[in-house]
Design a protein around this nucleic acid. Structure first.
Length: 632
RNA sequence: GCCAACAUAGCUCAGCUGGUAGAGCAACGCAUUCGUAAUGCGUAGGUCCGGGGUUCGAGUCCCCGUGUUGGCUCCA
């Protein structure tokens, strides 16, 4: 790392830092009264000022944004006629969108751009900030034929000042901040190129985006690239194929999942666990059909508000029927099937309900984004006064379920009434929001508030889980609904023997089973915990004279309820072990002469390797304990 | 849907500038009876995504489809 330029103009942040002795070799930016600023910004006397070192987290945005500028410079140098649009720093790097007449960039072009960037970095060109009038800016971008910049210029708040940043002779409309000079971009890499609409709107022109990333040092960049590799290794689509868990067949259609025996087994275990947990927690299980008449969807409002996600109707004896995108109307129909008393409430009905939603082909992604999936859905019907304790129960149930599947690092969000259109009066919203808050507090969990982030029909709690490599996924959602009870005219007879309106809660714990399976495959990198493993033990024999005893062991395990496979193939021990290891089988039991003689097995576990001999009875007991499902 | 890249054996992939398809693994057969991540030999396996075109000749070049993959609101 080279020292930033040591000559800063009078009255700039850099000069002020130098004066106070805070300017270090690795200072690349500063916080002025808490705002990220670059070193040559002007500063008034009485502001607090702290240096930002290249290694500080705050520096990343500056480094990346500067890298984006350098990239745009390189691109315009290499590909004349290309217009620049926007190029921000983002969570994991940066991008810049270009309008290039000949379209997207190829891999080799990315490599060329990287080389050109290296040159700009080596030249240590200072980033210079300049504020100018709108007229000057307009003239500049007209002269440079940068149509997008002109458009952006028009959109800037008339009260705000317009600034330009340049390094060398490359100039961009930009708010900054930037590094002192291009030589301070420590390490970067261009990652991919992709199409992106101007301003993210598909009615606009498709631009060419280049993604890149930059870090404070080579080591962090390498770590980031290694993390990407790790994520690739865990990709559930790759593991799904390798472990023969599922496939998606184009003959059948995109986004429609075929569960192979091993995958279906894991899923079945998961679902069985889910069902017994629900029964244990006071839910009743229901089952509803996959299609329903259009009337239903009119009443529910789905045809009005959700039609773009629904498939075209099919006609049955002159009546249009729709395949269901949600389960709620069916659950409501069961509610309405008989008169309800306040004594019946709360009602908790759960279903693993398979729904179909239209997703655009480009959005489909393995198990994570599909067209047909099973929701672990439940609907609770209750009196408003029951909301707080019901929410608390749902929440604690939800947390436990996620923990059981290996997720204990959670982010929880409470979303309240949207500012614009929403239904229901203020009083009931307040009650519901308080109920959600009460639920959260009774569980002692921390949460963030998403003010106005609720649905139009009620507030909600969303839970995101963090997986083994730190990515977050939203699974659980708990939503209060004032709308459907109204639309379907749901009632119950109260203590006063008159009709009252119940309140409804929709909730899903795992979200979609397909998606959750995908997340779980990546979380465990295919190595499921023993209770979820398709095979819990593989028996491997050293030679075929051990097969008879191995069959006996197999039978004992099977009758004890352990999922066991015997590999008596004509292969060497090493090969059999390798096969089981590749399938991530948690326990391998080796049987050879000494095991037969001592009536036991030699164990090798997935996590610990060879752990030695165990007599048959001890092994059975140990295995049963290891295969124990978490409590519900 | 849009932009781009890709599509070759069950899987992973090779096949240069057009000359008629190949490897490893898996499968199957035979031999081998073996001690903690791959025993050896052999056999079989392909509509080179589909359709059209250019050419004496197309896996390879061009066009049109289909599918997959990476992206498509982290605002100068």
């Amino acid at each position: 790392m080279n020292a930033p330029h040591n000559r800063f103009a009078e009255g700039t942040v850099g000069a002020a830092l130098a004066q106070s002795g805070k300017l270090k070799d690795n200072t690349v930016a500063a916080k002025v009264s808490g705002v990220l600023t670059d070193l040559h910004a002007q500063i008034s006397q009485d502001e607090s000022i702290e240096p930002i070192a290249v290694t500080d987290a705050d520096a990343l945005m500056v480094i990346r944004h500067s890298a984006a500028h350098v990239m745009a410079d390189a691109v315009q140098r290499l590909f004349p006629g290309t217009q620049v649009t926007i190029g921000p720093a983002i969570d994991n790097g940066f991008y810049y969108d270009f309008d290039r007449p000949q379209g997207g960039f190829t891999e080799t072009e990315l490599a060329d751009i990287e080389k050109e960037m290296e040159k700009v970095i080596a030249a240590r060109k200072p980033f210079v900030r300049r504020t100018i009038t709108r007229a000057e800016a307009r003239q500049l971008f007209e002269q440079n034929n940068e149509q997008y910049k002109l458009e952006l210029l028009e959109a800037i708040d008339p009260a705000a000042e317009v600034s330009l940043y340049s390094h060398g002779d490359w100039v961009d409309l930009c708010a900054g901040p930037h590094l002192p000079h291009t030589g301070l971009i420590p390490s970067f890499k261009l990652l991919s190129s992709a199409g992106a609409y101007w301003r993210g709107d598909e009615r606009n022109k498709m631009l060419s985006r280049i993604y890149g990333t930059a870090f404070a040092n080579k080591k962090e960049l390498r770590k980031y690239l290694a993390d990407l590799e790790e994520a690739k290794k865990r990709d559930h689509r790759k593991l799904g194929k390798e472990l023969s868990l599922f496939s998606i067949d184009e003959q059948i259609g995109g986004g429609l999942v075929l569960w192979h025996p091993r995958g279906a087994l894991v899923r079945t275990i998961l679902e069985d666990h889910w069902r017994s947990a629900h029964q244990r927690h006071g839910y009743e299980l229901i089952i509803t059909p996959h299609i329903g008449r259009s009337h239903l969807w009119e009443t529910s409002g789905h045809l009005e508000n959700y039609a773009e996600n629904m498939y075209a109707p099919m006609e049955i004896e002159g009546n249009p029927y729709y395949i269901k995108p949600m389960n709620c109307p069916f659950h409501i129909a069961i509610y309405k099937n008989a008169l309800k008393s306040y004594r019946d409430l709360p009602i908790r009905w759960a279903e693993l309900g398979t729904v179909y939603r239209f997703e655009r082909s480009g959005q489909l992604h393995g198990l994570l984004r599909v067209r047909g999936f099973t929701q672990d859905d439940a609907h609770l019907f209750m009196r408003v006064s029951q909301l707080p304790q019901e929410i608390a129960k749902v929440l604690s149930f939800s947390l436990q379920m996620l923990r059981n599947f290996g997720f204990s690092d959670l982010e929880i969000m409470l979303a309240t009434r949207p500012a614009e259109k929403s239904i229901g009066d203020a009083e009931i919203w307040e009650k519901a929001e308080n109920a959600l808050r009460y639920g959260l507090e009774s569980q002692g969990v921390s949460y963030t508030l998403d003010e106005g982030g609720g649905a139009f029909y009620g507030p909600k709690i969303d839970i995101k889980i963090k997986d083994a490599i730190g990515r977050t996924w939203q699974c659980s959602t708990i939503q209060v609904d004032f709308n459907l009870p109204e639309r379907f005219d749901l009632t119950y007879i109260g203590e006063d023997s008159s009709r009252h309106r119940p309140v409804m809660v929709h909730r899903a714990l795992l979200g979609s089973i397909e998606r959750f399976m995908g997340i779980m495959i990546e979380h465990y990198a295919g190595a499921f915990p023993v209770w979820l493993s398709p095979e819990q033990v593989v028996l491997v024999t050293v030679s075929d004279r051990h097969d008879a005893f191995a069959r006996e062991v197999e039978e004992r395990l099977r009758t004890a309820g352990i999922r066991v496979q015997l590999n008596a193939n004509n292969e060497k021990l090493g090969a059999k072990i390798r096969e089981a290891r590749l399938l991530r089988v948690p326990v391998i039991a080796v049987i050879g002469d000494s095991e037969v003689e001592q009536r036991g097995v030699s164990l090798r576990t997935r996590e610990e390797g060879d752990i030695g001999f165990q007599p048959l009875d001890a092994f059975l007991a140990w295995m049963k304990a290891a295969a124990q499902a978490p409590s519900i």
